[in-house]
Design a protein around this nucleic acid. Structure first.
Length: 476
RNA sequence: GAUUGCGUAGCUCAGUCGGUAGAGCAGCCGGCUUUUAACCGGCAGGUCCUGGGUUCGAGUCCCAGCGCAAUCACCA
């Protein structure tokens, strides 16, 4: 601790009446480049964490950082008390100080608060990570996010963007007449999606419980109970693998509307994603018209309308033959070494082939709705009246990622049960355990949007761990 | 779960053919009143991820384990 301000001194400097009159960004805006501050120049009181410290002898420059950005403060020996100047020289990276003084500029034009006084608010005891590399080690960034947040400005910006997006989604859904609800995270049966659940248990009730894989079953019950339009923004938990676009817990917005159809939900999703992109494009120099936002090497254009293409058309373009041609589908599946191709049902082969030959044809630069999925692989979805082989379901793909599905819920209990059982016949036992039959029926339409993936796309984040504050890691 | 890569100072990284553990920044001491990765002089700083093995000698080669990353599988 040599050279550091003694703890007792730091504690003495901690003043409860701290008043932050203006944050760093406000002070900077006050000092418009063209504007010469009138005398007497306005005093600003600012506080922040020190991210630069240059001691020139009788003049000390520091940069303060808060959630809005960085601001320079200059402390001259002649401008402050002897004690304050000693403090200024002893400051370390990571310390939090408050200071007060007139806003001005340095000879080099840098906006700057010329300190008249300063106070240490919080002493940093641990050496911070590098001042210009930021924190680059992924493991440290995820495990010690609170360090990453101030050491890496982009991290702070990403999570501020996430808050804005979630807020926008909530306001958007409310403006469309949807009511926000909360449904159980711990469920006696994990239903609503074909996924492996986490198992937990309630001791007093001596009861096995599952962390939900989807809110679907409960949201539908709310429709049965008389709420016509509901949505929930909350976590789902799936006991599956982890990769760049999968975290064991993830946030989804799921919405249900009674008596709607899936084409109105398509328009709603299109507008929602578009508006979120417009919000993110604000004040961004790298955003183009549309708006177009960068995602890695791509520039995704969110201009309305989004691309619409049918499942069958994509399949046929990729495979070279119709998905209804059972012989060709089977031959192609065998040729491409689809797992268990000999045993699987025709439509499960179509589904597998679609992923191989169809999905790659989707333009990653344009949000794309893939519509009219085969009924046989969507057992809970209402078939189209004009062609019952197809159903009222779409999925939206952006930059090669599946962001969310929507479908019209089947409301005939007998047909549903029959198709469900039928589909299970083509699936191995372990997986079928976790497909739970839905017992509540009402005509409705559903949409689910993966919030994490949407945030990834709109903030140009390559990994889902970059948009989740505390992603799951193994114990170190 | 499988494959591949990575793990060296607080941070970012070098480390050659197996031969005394290195740099920049951060830290400490000194100097400097307009710096923008400030600069100048000096000092200090190591469980080379962990455990075995080969060798006269291992950061380096071999085996096992742990963690992270990418790809694949599962899934959204």
């Amino acid at each position: 601790m040599e050279g550091l301000v003694p703890l007792a001194e730091a504690r003495a400097a901690f003043r409860e009446e701290l008043q932050v009159a203006a944050d760093a960004e406000a002070a900077k805006a006050k000092a418009d480049p063209a504007h010469v501050p009138a005398e007497p120049r306005p005093l600003r009181r600012v506080a922040g964490r020190i991210v630069q410290h240059r001691d020139l002898g009788k003049l000390v420059f520091v940069w303060l950082r808060d959630h809005t950005g960085d601001l320079q403060v200059s402390i001259s020996k002649a401008g402050v008390s002897a004690a304050d100047f000693e403090l200024a020289k002893a400051l370390d990276y990571g310390d939090i100080i408050s200071t007060e003084g007139p806003v001005g500029r340095t000879n080099k034009g840098e906006v700057c608060v010329w300190a008249k006084s300063l106070a240490l608010q919080c002493k940093s005891l641990a050496p911070p990570p590098g001042k210009w590399h930021g924190l680059e080690d992924a493991e440290t960034r995820y495990r010690r996010r609170y360090v990453d947040m101030w050491a890496t400005p982009r991290t702070m910006a990403t999570f501020q963007a996430r808050s804005r997006i979630v807020s926008l989604v909530r306001r958007f859904m409310e403006s469309r007449g949807f009511q926000e609800v909360e449904t159980p995270m711990m469920q006696p049966l994990a239903g609503g999606a074909a996924a492996r659940p986490f198992v937990t248990r309630h001791n007093a009730l001596d009861m096995e419980l599952f962390m939900r894989v989807a809110p679907e079953l409960y949201l539908k019950r709310l429709l049965v109970g008389g709420m016509p339009r509901v949505f929930e923004i909350n976590r789902n938990f799936r006991n599956e693998g982890v990769d760049r676009s999968h975290n064991p817990e993830f946030t989804a917005m799921e919405a249900y509307e009674a008596f709607g159809d899936c084409w109105t939900m398509l328009e709603l999703t299109e507008s929602l994603v578009h508006e979120a992109a417009v919000e993110m494009a604000k004040g961004r120099e790298d955003a183009g018209p549309g708006p177009a936002l960068p995602f890695g090497e791509l520039r995704v254009n969110y201009a309305k309308p989004f691309v619409r293409v049918t499942f069958g058309e994509l399949f046929e373009r990729g495979a070279g033959f119709s998905m209804f041609d059972e012989a060709k589908v089977r031959a192609e599946a065998l040729k491409r070494h689809v797992a268990d191709a000999a045993k699987l049902d025709h439509w499960l082969l179509v589904e597998a082939l679609f992923e191989i030959v169809g999905e790659p044809l989707i333009d990653p630069l344009r949000p794309t709705f893939v519509t009219d999925w085969p009924s046989a692989i969507s057992p809970l979805t209402r078939p189209r009246r004009d062609d019952p082989r197809l159903c009222e379901r779409w999925d939206i793909f952006i930059a090669g990622m599946e962001v969310g599905p929507a479908y019209t819920e089947l409301n005939d209990p007998d047909i549903q049960r029959e198709k469900f059982t039928q589909q299970l016949a083509g699936i191995d036992d372990e997986e079928s355990t976790f497909r739970t039959l839905d017992e509540d029926f009402l005509e409705s339409l559903k949409v689910g949007i993966g919030i994490d993936r949407l945030v990834m796309l709109l903030t140009d984040s390559p990994s889902i761990r970059d948009v989740i504050l505390f992603p799951l890691l193994k114990r170190s």
